[in-house]
Design a binder for these strands. Sequence first.
DNA 1: TATGAATGAGAATTCATTCAT
DNA 2: CATGAATGAATTCTCATTCAT
Lengths: 222, 222, 222, 222
Amino acid sequence: MSPEKNNKKIDKYDRIIDAAIKVFARKGFHKARVSDIADEANVADGTIYLYFKNKDDLLITIFEEKLQEIIDLFIAKLRGEPDPVSKLARFICLHFSMMEQYPDLAAILTVELRQSHKFMREYTPQKFGEFLKIITGIVIQGKDQGLFKEDAAPGVVKRALFGAIDEMGTFWMLAPRVKRGKYSTQDAAKQVCDIFIRGLLKDPALWDSKKAEFFKQKGGEL
Amino acid sequence: MSPEKNNKKIDKYDRIIDAAIKVFARKGFHKARVSDIADEANVADGTIYLYFKNKDDLLITIFEEKLQEIIDLFIAKLRGEPDPVSKLARFICLHFSMMEQYPDLAAILTVELRQSHKFMREYTPQKFGEFLKIITGIVIQGKDQGLFKEDAAPGVVKRALFGAIDEMGTFWMLAPRVKRGKYSTQDAAKQVCDIFIRGLLKDPALWDSKKAEFFKQKGGEL
Amino acid sequence: MSPEKNNKKIDKYDRIIDAAIKVFARKGFHKARVSDIADEANVADGTIYLYFKNKDDLLITIFEEKLQEIIDLFIAKLRGEPDPVSKLARFICLHFSMMEQYPDLAAILTVELRQSHKFMREYTPQKFGEFLKIITGIVIQGKDQGLFKEDAAPGVVKRALFGAIDEMGTFWMLAPRVKRGKYSTQDAAKQVCDIFIRGLLKDPALWDSKKAEFFKQKGGEL
Amino acid sequence: MSPEKNNKKIDKYDRIIDAAIKVFARKGFHKARVSDIADEANVADGTIYLYFKNKDDLLITIFEEKLQEIIDLFIAKLRGEPDPVSKLARFICLHFSMMEQYPDLAAILTVELRQSHKFMREYTPQKFGEFLKIITGIVIQGKDQGLFKEDAAPGVVKRALFGAIDEMGTFWMLAPRVKRGKYSTQDAAKQVCDIFIRGLLKDPALWDSKKAEFFKQKGGEL
DNA sequence: TATGAATGAGAATTCATTCAT
DNA sequence: CATGAATGAATTCTCATTCAT
């Protein structure tokens, strides 16, 4: 019943994952020591190897597991949106909210995912592909409904949009904490919505009229 | 006059920089050994330390020096474009061309710059900021001329655009070489132009009419 | 119970210290490789860094820890001597005995301590100062009791005496092993006693009469 | 005629020796880089190897050459002293004066000579032996003249005396510069004379009467 | 002789991973 | 399951020495 005992009850697996997220975010994957993670998780170094094959595996697990959670969350939230335009706007807003709520995780996905993708032998970030498919789905739906330009290539749009949001997230993460107000991410979200939705719509005026209404009711997104 | 003798004449500094670009691109900064670079440059390990303070310095030098070259090139090329819209289109096309021509350099700028920014103590990628300012300049000009939406925030647009292009570049780099045809980057460039220029223009129809003409005459960009 | 098992039980810390003393004495601090010490201690290279911050720390630890042992031993032994004259004689004899018993340690204290003192930033051999204070104490006591010359400066005597003994120790260490008989150090001790005690006494005849008796009963000193 | 030209006329060999003395004294032999010496001597690194076989050779040359100068100087000065007692006193004073005049050289002889002796394969400091023989000579003469105790072992006395002076020199070198007044070395010299001469004399009273006179006329010794 | 750029052997230290307890 | 001491491979950087000019 002591807090320490209680602490030990929390699944070590999760403790390790959370510790790793914190440490990877703070020091970067390469400079993070396994023993740092063990310390942060209050476990012995060796214990980590009971749950994960090695340091790489720890990172990959974070990618796959956390991305799955994000995918599930996004899909659930997007289900509530009536049309591709609001879905896209919602997606963008959700992404920024997520970065704000889980900056450590965002830092890892932003900074380490590329590295890993490129340099970790035999790892293809499958879940990341699934995540991007959410955008593809929205774009296709928009085209099917005759709202989006016919020559929009979903495969390109998904990457362009992800890249745009991701880069802004990087910037936001690196900015001094004081500048990270709720305001700035919401504002950034609006700007990205403007560009991408107007850019995709056959008739950009549609968004100009919808926009105000869309942002009226949104508060904490996640 | 023998090729070997000639080879020795080529400035070692440049040989090392070029070798480092190749090796960093292939293995990533952290996994690249200094001796790999020395081998690639046909130079002794110690020689590298005559020209660079340490491994970090080598990476930073690549960032600063190569980005400066890119900045100079971009500014020169953009000077020839008559209006903000073509300037923006041109910028996008140039970026993709650059990635195609110098994939190793692009890989480093794309993958390592973030890492460094975040984890290399006391390095601020000043030149990168300068590079992004090229976009800011175009957006501001477009707003001044009444072409772009008044509420477009240049600081956000620059990052969103860079992120979009950069992410697509990453994707392209990671794609199997066979898929990297001239076609695909040009096509991607068009898509990104569509989104961003339409997204920014007060009257997106302007781009729809300009577009065909713009892409008619472009060949190898750099 | 097997000797190997037993061997492992011996504290690694001590094994490393002892190995370091041996190796530093044999090759000198600078030419001694950490891996030499590891080999000698039957330990992996990395293990040394679990117990010591670095190579310098290993040397400093030897200085401080072993000097403390010597100080404690000397103080205990000197307590048994009735007057400053026999204390001084005893101190000299003990020093030579110590060199004979622990030649490796003596070699390090003799050869490396100066270097370190002069060239290891921010290390002051505090324990060495404490050791020398033993002599100062004896000289002061001798003056207080009216035995030693009034103009004898304890601070000078302590260094002169230490220097004399130390130099003879160096010589002895460098001499071929065969020449290092019990005889020679005891003989050297006598000579040094003669010079310093007669030199300090108001009435040198006092020592001439005491001398024979003092050396009669001394055997293995430590 | 320009100072630079003039500077170049000074034999490079000597320039290098002097530079080496300065650098070895300041940083210690092991931490001194050959290029430091080259810089100090205003020669190229490679030039040093035209005059000396290697770094070790440079140190050994300093030992042998400078010690020879000292030996010559000491012998000349001692020739003027009438009896073994004043010779011994003079030797001691000269030694302290030398340390004061050439502290860099003294530092090297004091700190590096032992190291080298012990760890430089196949180097026996022959000149150092010759230097010590000066003392042996004085002691033997003193015994022959019936002044010194018959049981004084010249071989022991020479080392004890050298050790005493040398250790005090070490201390003096390491002391803050402000404390290094003319006073302190002269005072130290007196103390050492007192101990060793009284220690050696059959009749110590002899020195007590001679002492004042001896120190009256001495000024700058070298 | 003189140069100093280039060499490359060498050593300290770190840290992911293992395994005896 | 859990521990954490021990391992030792791996890598950066230094600097004495060489040699083409």
